[in-house]
């Protein structure tokens, strides 16, 4: 049985349809990536799944519990790391986690061990008695991940976990995230608009304008935009092309003095190429399709990394809707 099941979910604010009839399933113990540009409906979907807002229509289940009818049970089985920090900056890291443990009804006798384990996992144990306001952005995010695990959820939601982090903290955080399904027996549901981050997911769904436009493993999705491209410069392109045809049965294209061949497994064919062509080869380059290429192909546009004005319009509209109702 899938741990998350969404059927025909719709969420609209007046005329604005933030989520437009999406359906998907997430298998237990996997990392599921929910991708799309800002304002595509990712956070709205998370908010429905976390029972923070109610859906206009459609159904959502987590661990078999109905998000609309059994919010309390759903809340107990999930952990959330929001886009913006939700830590109490005037408390220490340790106190923030203890607060969370009490809030989620963790048994008193277990609180200490769980908090210690969580702090150790994200390597913040040494700094546990520092006030959170002294933490860097990366440390805060790690602390929030640790907090999300305290009550042993079945699913951990990460909404843009690496947003605003420097590359080093980002890589560091990814280390913890990819370890989590095995180490903490938890399913990860994450959103991101950094396409390259989605590569670590077991399954990806790409959402645009409230609709899921494609779903599959990163490998499957990349296949839809063609395979890897190996480009090479040689001393004699004509001779090399004939040799390549003989070796792989592929016609290499020649562009600007370089040969391009498209293949399923680019990395595996490079050694063979070099063995076959010998010292005719001057240089070899491997280009692999990215999830960004998938998005580009399906929507005809690149993912907007920071479309601030568009986003604030949507937020404004949602706020206005809430005021009216």
């Amino acid at each position: 049985m899938p741990i998350i099941k969404v059927e025909n979910l719709v969420k609209s604010y007046g005329n604005l349809t933030a989520v437009d009839g999406i359906s998907f399933e997430v298998e237990e113990g996997t990392i599921f990536g929910f991708l799309g540009p800002n304002g595509a409906g990712k956070t709205t979907t998370i908010n429905v799944l976390c029972t923070l807002i109610s859906a206009t229509s459609g159904k959502a289940f987590i661990d078999g519990f109905d998000c609309a009818k059994e919010p309390s049970k759903v809340r107990k089985s999930i952990g959330i790391v929001f886009q913006d920090t939700t830590l109490d900056k005037d408390l220490t890291a340790y106190e923030n986690l203890v607060f969370h443990a009490y809030l989620y009804g963790v048994k008193k006798s277990e609180i200490k061990t769980r908090v210690h384990d969580a702090l150790n996992f994200v390597e913040l144990y040494e700094r546990k008695d520092d006030l959170v306001k002294k933490y860097s952005g990366g440390m805060k995010r790690r602390l929030e991940v640790a907090r999300g695990l305290i009550h042993r959820p079945r699913v951990l939601f990460l909404d843009e976990p690496t947003l605003g982090l420097d590359p080093q903290s980002r890589a560091n955080l990814w280390g913890f995230i990819t370890e989590m399904p095995k180490k903490h027996n938890v399913t990860i549901f994450m959103t991101t608009h950094y396409m390259e981050e989605a590569e670590v997911c077991d399954k990806i769904a790409i959402i645009d304008n409230g609709k899921i436009i494609v779903e599959g493993s990163p490998e499957e999705l990349k296949k839809t935009v063609g395979g890897d491209v190996v480009s090479l410069r040689t001393r004699d392109n004509n001779w090399s092309r004939q040799e390549i045809k003989k070796m792989f049965g592929i016609d290499a294209e020649e562009k600007d003095g370089e040969l391009y061949l498209t293949t399923g497994k680019g990395d595996a064919c490079i050694p063979e190429l070099i063995r076959g062509l010998g010292d005719m080869v001057l240089s070899v380059k491997l280009q692999r399709p990215t999830i960004n290429d998938v998005f580009l192909k399906l929507t005809g546009k690149a993912i907007r990394v920071e479309d601030v004005s568009g986003m604030s319009n949507i937020k404004e509209e949602v706020r206005a809707y809430r005021r009216r109702h």
């Binding site: 923070l52 920090t85 809030l103």
Partner: peptide, 15 residues
């Protein structure tokens, strides 16, 4: 708490 986000931690809890 609303402004600094901490209130969401409370509102999202099974409480």
């Amino acid at each position: 708490d609303k402004e600094f986000g901490f209130f969401r931690e409370i509102l999202a809890a099974p409480v």
